[in-house]
Amino acid sequence: MVGVAATFDARPDTASKFQANPATRDSSWVRYLIIGVGLTYFALFLLLPLIAVFVEAFRKGAGVYFSALVEPDALSAIRLTLLAAALSVPFNLIFGLAAAWAIAKFQFRGKNFLITLIDLPFSVSPVVAGLIYVLVFGLQGWFGPWLREHDIKIIFAVPGIILATTFVTFPFIARELIPLMQAQGRDEEEAAISLGASGFQTFWRVTIPNIKWALLYGIILCNARAMGEFGAVSVVSGHIRGETNTMPLQVEILYNEYQFAAAFAVASLLALLALVTLVLKTYVEWRAHHHNAIAEE
């Protein structure tokens, strides 16, 4: 649900069309006013925070910056963040493909309800997302006593972090694929089958190439959220330095200890990740748009 605004969609360039047309052209003072107000708002709420991260990170010089990044706790946080993303993204990738295949290629009852359920994690507060796993796997939770007997730690340990990350990124890939595959229909798959292709061949040779950009788009967004998740992970992590801290949690700890430059140094890595995400996302949109433009020629 909440990811709806980031739905994979190539945006055409329409601005010149509107300004060339006397019926849709606005007077110049309206133009300047709207652009002026819009950009001020954009600068105050988006641009300044982004710049601030990097300025604060280098406030005490490059030396402090880099030493904050190679500190063992920071490195361990980076490792854990990469691990959580490396597991939760493939989980949700497989899920997204399975769900989209079932929903887009077949008719069955309760389909719309299923789609709503898939969107559910987007509407749950991250804090609640963390809490639910505490209720299931925590010491006082459903499986708490059993887990303790068998000496398995999930909450305040790495498995809990992976679970919470998987929950908050659950719908990302599925929701990119479902509408696209529904729009594409079954014709090409049926054609492949009628030409003798097996189900597996059909999937690899026909379905996957048709959805590759949306798939990549979903993976990019899923990964960004997986690496940046804070609330849910914060609940299940236990904040054990060097063990169960991800990068965003490391930022919090450093910040609360008034090590601002170090906190912003780690934060700058995450901001860089966000920028790379946006660049990749824009590139994929552009490629997909290019792709569609040819298809519609």
């Binding site: 990811g3 605004a5 980031a6 988006l46 925070p49 982004l50 601030a52 991260v53 604060e56 967004l221 960004a224 959220r225 690496m227 940046g228 998740e229 804070f230 609330g231 990068m247 965003p248 949690l249 930022v251 919090e252 910040y255 906190a263 912003f264 934060a267 995450l270 901001a271 990740l273 966000a274 920028l275 995400t277 946006l278 996302k281």
Partner: peptide, 14 residues
């Protein structure tokens, strides 16, 4: 789309 991509903790401290 920055708020979608930027981790919330980073946004918070910035």
């Amino acid at each position: 789309d920055l708020p979608f991509a930027l981790p919330t903790a980073v946004a918070g401290i910035a």
